[in-house]
């Protein structure tokens, strides 16, 4: 495993643009998911949802490096990745509400949101299932001579599926333009990481497959971005895949409404003191890159956008009778 280069944030900043975009992206994900928790609790969303609140720096840090031509594959906890990659909020919301104009026609809901336009190859309800698909995506673009890259997000828990191991081996062997992003939030459903693996860092596994494994602080958006930039540079240069592990923490239950009997509230409270967004705001202010008022304005504008998207979803029509039969075959 290669050691991540410390980004020496302050040195990198002055010439660096996009910082306000990072803030905007992270805050957007957070506010969307906070709103989703609220409408879910109000009984307005059927099924179940999994939020990534507290983990926004991973989605944003990774996706901020990508272009619309690049493709991501995500998981059941995929709202953040999907929005950070650039999916429009309205079809996203309408899908979660199960409406006709949802991105997947209301067939799928939160666990399977996708956007071909934004390069989101789909969230997935099967843990570990995205990895083999990402191989093919990377193979396909390389085959066609496109220089776009594929990124697959998965959890620490997913790294114990055979698909993880099969995919890393094959991606390394074929030098695929692929970045494996392990979003290690310390939990797989109701179990803590130490209950299901012997090692602390999943990045170490990369070594066994012949690719670099990089561990970054997943609560620091700049460190994630820096790690991702290096991984992307490798992929775009034809040097093959990287396993990028972003260490973070799952602030909420596995699913919305999870009573979380398996972990003491105090530990969660403690973990929540590391807030990727609050820390980044502090950094922006301290560096004189943004004022409090400016950040609050971003917050206010986002809330308006989100309320509009919710209103749009709620006002959207239900899927027409028999709609589910329309998408089964070409």
């Amino acid at each position: 495993m290669t050691k991540p280069k410390d980004p020496a944030i302050s040195a990198a900043i002055p010439n660096d643009d996009g910082l306000m975009d990072l803030h905007h992206s992270m805050l957007r994900v957070r506010l969307v998911e906070e709103k989703l928790l609220q409408v879910f609790a109000d009984g307005k969303i059927p099924g179940f949802i999994h939020v990534s609140i507290g983990q926004e720096a991973v989605a944003t840090g990774v996706c901020s490096c990508l272009t619309p031509a690049d493709t991501i594959f995500t998981t059941h906890r995929g709202h953040g990745h999907t929005l950070a990659k650039g999916m429009e909020l309205k079809p996203f919301m309408a899908e979660i509400f199960g409406r006709a104009n949802g991105a997947c026609h209301g067939n799928s809901g939160s666990m399977h949101v996708a956007s071909a336009e934004a390069g989101v190859g789909g969230a997935n309800g099967i843990v570990g299932a995205g990895l083999p698909i990402s191989l093919g995506s990377a193979f396909g673009t390389a085959f066609k001579g496109e220089d776009s890259v594929t990124v697959v997000f998965f959890g620490d828990g997913a790294s114990n599926q055979g698909t993880f191991h099969e995919s890393l081996n094959l991606a390394a062997l074929w030098n695929l333009p692929l970045v494996f992003v392990c979003e290690n939030n310390g939990w797989a459903q109701f179990s803590a990481q130490k209950a299901y693996m012997k090692i602390d860092s999943i990045a170490r596994r990369a070594d066994g497959y012949g690719m670099p494994g990089v561990l970054v602080d997943g609560d620091d958006v700049l460190k994630v971005r820096d790690g991702m930039r290096q991984a992307l540079a490798r992929a775009r240069a034809g040097d093959g895949p990287t396993l990028l592990e972003c260490k973070t923490y799952r602030w909420f239950g596995h699913y919305a409404g999870d009573p979380q009997k398996y972990r003491p509230a105090a530990n969660v409270e403690q973990a929540r003191t590391v807030d990727c967004i609050a820390n980044f705001e502090k950094f922006l202010i301290e560096q004189g890159l943004a004022g409090r008022q400016q950040l609050d304005d971003v917050d206010a504008r986002l809330r308006v956008e989100i309320d509009e998207a919710i209103a749009y979803a709620e006002a959207s029509p239900a899927a027409p009778k028999g709609q589910y039969l329309n998408d089964v075959y070409a």
Partner: peptide, 10 residues
């Protein structure tokens, strides 16, 4: 019907 189980129209 011959379709996967839909989310909203279950």
């Amino acid at each position: 019907p011959f379709s996967p189980v839909p989310f909203s129209q279950e």
